[in-house]
């Protein structure tokens, strides 16, 4: 059984349909890349999967680990092992990063039947996982994402992923706004966290990130639908040809059909 099974997923935001029948199956141990130009629906897919209520699912189904994912609130999805690294991590003034992370981690641990971590236990785990993304320790004393640089925010996302140890991680344009060094740090973090019992979906516009996080499958999303899938070579082809050629081919298919 696939870890994630998406069937004919339709979703809209403020009455406009963005996803128009997405099918996707992700097994444990796999890394999938979802590529597409701006406005194709790739970020919407990430948001819908993570449970953002601003998006309305109008048709289709999603099962995660055999459970109806769409039936779960965002926090229940996180507890079930789903994680999304935000394209635009939200600044939360007044909320201390360590307090936030420990609260979240203990919620997830409670759900898994694990013991909650006290301040000392949390700190030693946090130190270990911060090293993974080369984050200085004073991050924990700061307010969540407040006055973080773009690169710091993205590293903070991967740090959270490292703490929560999700079964499925969705990286929503994690590469955008990163310089080469930060991209390498973030990618190495993701690679180290990946294991045969976990899966990753990388949502990106560019092939650049996929040089570091090598996907098993690449899917191209256009106009709210996955139009073609392949292996990592599809990403290279997209890099060379751009999205226009594939868009033209897809339109031809649509017409001939």
């Amino acid at each position: 059984m696939a870890l994630l099974e998406i069937k004919n997923l339709h979703a809209s935001v403020e009455g406009t349909e963005i996803l128009k029948g997405v099918d996707l199956s992700v097994n444990v141990g796999e890394i999938h890349a979802i590529m597409g130009p701006n406005g194709s629906g790739k970020s919407t897919l990430a948001q819908v999967l993570s449970g953002n209520e601003a998006y309305e699912v109008t048709d289709g189904s999603v099962t995660f680990d055999g459970k109806d994912l769409l039936d779960l609130e965002a926090d229940e999805r996180a507890k079930a092992g789903l994680f999304m690294a935000f394209q635009y991590p939200v600044e939360i003034p007044g909320v201390n990063s360590a307090y936030f992370m420990r609260t979240a981690l203990n919620e997830v641990r409670k759900h898994r039947g694990e013991e909650e971590l006290d301040a000392v236990g949390f700190l030693s785990l946090a130190r270990e996982r911060m090293a993974l993304v080369e984050m200085p320790e004073d991050f924990l004393k700061r307010q969540v994402n407040e006055a973080f640089s773009g690169g710091e925010k993205k590293r903070h996302e991967i740090f959270q992923m490292a703490m929560l140890e999700p079964r499925l991680a969705i990286l929503d344009e994690t590469d955008s706004g990163l310089d080469i060094d930060a991209l390498r740090i973030v990618s190495e973090g993701v690679n180290q966290l990946h294991s045969p019992d976990k899966a990753v979906i990388v949502v990106t516009h560019y092939q650049r990130l996929l040089e570091y996080i090598v996907p098993d499958f690449v899917h191209v999303i256009l106009n709210g639908r996955i139009v073609t899938s392949g292996d990592k070579h599809l990403a290279l082809r997209l890099e060379e040809e751009g999205y226009d050629k594939i868009r033209a081919e897809h339109e031809e298919q649509a017409i001939s059909a």
Binding site: S50, G51, N52, E53, A54, E73, A74, D75, R77, A78, K79, F83, M84, F86, P89, V90, E91, I92, P93, G94, V95, F100, T103, A104, L105, E107, V108, H111, Q143, Q160, L164
Partner: peptide, 22 residues
């Protein structure tokens, strides 16, 4: 911000509380 906290496993009512406390 509410959704961000929720997406990390924090219930909506706790997220509410955390934000107001902040």
């Amino acid at each position: 911000a509410l959704f961000y906290l929720q997406s990390r496993g924090i219930s909506r009512s706790d997220a509410y509380r955390i934000l107001l406390r902040g």
